[in-house]
Amino acid sequence: MITSVFTEELMIKELKASSKADVIKEMVEVLNANGKLSDKEAYLNAVVKREEEFSTGIGMGVAIPHGKSSGVKEPAVVFARSQAGVDYESMDGAPAHLFFMIAVPDAANDEHLKILSSLSRKLMHANVREALMAATTYDEVIEIIK
């Protein structure tokens, strides 16, 4: 179940950040505040390193910063939105509006990994992205991605 990795506290309805680096920091902060991280710096470094290899701004308004790190206590997903859009160095050059940050511990079980992989698959569908932009509550978001 997606609810096992994505709880209401992990949703940011409107991001304050307006740059890529700040978006990542803001989302990592939410993970940390909810006790998902044992070593915030280690996880942040993993995410940033992943972004340096290749931006996770996959285009179509979606970005999925993610990292696998021993600094993660349990698998978690943060969902954030920016109506204004953020320049995320996306593949298509367009601003990103939907952000899914995925945190995976070094030793994650397959069940969680499968939840995350199916979430990734869902994001490729245009109707899912449109619905996520329009969603106003946590329950609506869950309904779309479950």
Binding site: T56, H66, G67, L113, L116, S117, R121
Partner: peptide, 8 residues
């Protein structure tokens, strides 16, 4: 990482 891009 094998978490997101593979599946997308």
């Amino acid at each position: 990482t094998g978490i997101a891009h593979t599946y997308m």
